[in-house]
Simulated scan of single mutants.
Amino acid sequence: MPHLTSASAADSGQAEHFRRILAERRAELDARLADDARRLAARRRAGSTCGVKAIRYRMRKLERQRDEMDRMLTGLDALAAASVTS
């Protein structure tokens, strides 16, 4: 049975803290993407092209940020798994 040293326990706690922050930030990005998707759909239904390019640009930017957060979350999960098994 693996045991945690005080240093690894602190690292684990810090990793969990950052994981929570990243997960909250990712949820915020998801909400912003959903809002933009609704705006884009409303513009399409109205037949308006005004602002569509800006919305799409912002959505691509948010999607890149979300993908980066997913990579960081995956990395933190991998570190947490490695610290438990070592």
Rank of each mutant, 00 (worst) to 15 (best):
A7K: 13
L40K: 04
E28L: 11
A10G: 02
L62D: 12
G13C: 07
L79I: 09
G13A: 15
A41V: 01
H3D: 12
Q65H: 10
A9H: 11
A34D: 12
I55G: 00
L4W: 06
D35E: 11
D70N: 10
A27W: 04
G51W: 02
A78N: 10
E63F: 01
E16R: 15
D30L: 08
P2I: 10
S6Q: 14
V84P: 00
R43N: 02
A10H: 13
M69E: 08
S86M: 13
H17V: 04
A80I: 05
C50L: 11
M72N: 10
E16V: 11
A42R: 09
A41S: 08
R64Y: 06
D36G: 07
T5E: 09
M69T: 03
R39N: 03
Y57F: 04
G51Y: 03
G51R: 01
D67N: 12
M59C: 02
M69D: 10
L73T: 08
T49F: 03
R26W: 04
A9E: 15
S6E: 15
A10T: 13
M72I: 02
M69W: 04
L73R: 11
L79G: 05
L29V: 11
M1H: 12
R32E: 11
G13D: 14
R26A: 13
G13R: 07
R32W: 03
H3S: 13
A9S: 15
A42V: 00
A9I: 08
D77G: 15
R64N: 11
I21E: 15
Q14W: 10
A80Q: 11
L73Q: 08
D67A: 15
A82E: 15
P2V: 12
R56Y: 00
D11V: 02
A78P: 02
R20M: 10
R43T: 05
E16G: 05
K53H: 05
E68V: 04
S12E: 09
L33E: 07
A10E: 12
L76F: 11
D77Q: 12
S6T: 14
